[in-house]
Amino acid sequence: MFNVSQVNTLTYNPELCNGCRLCTIVCPHAVFTMINKKAHLDNPVACMECGACRLNCSEGAIAVESGVGCAAAMFRAALTGQKEATC
């Protein structure tokens, strides 16, 4: 109740991880940590869907539908008929 915004589209397949640790470096909210030389999805709720981890994962182990979490931009996009809300 009243926590409906705590959702995101982040998914991670640890079997593809090559242990490069880039996801732990680029994430602004420490969603991933390294455990035994593999990335571990530690705090998925904190994900803001910026897409940095997906972009920098050379193995394609991470999927996330990235975009801006900006209500004003979404309203503007809806009013002006844009497909995708941008800042």
Partner: peptide
């Protein structure tokens, strides 16, 4: 920290 999915919801 707001995610697109969260704001949509």
């Amino acid at each position: 920290f707001a995610s697109r999915s969260g704001v949509r919801k």
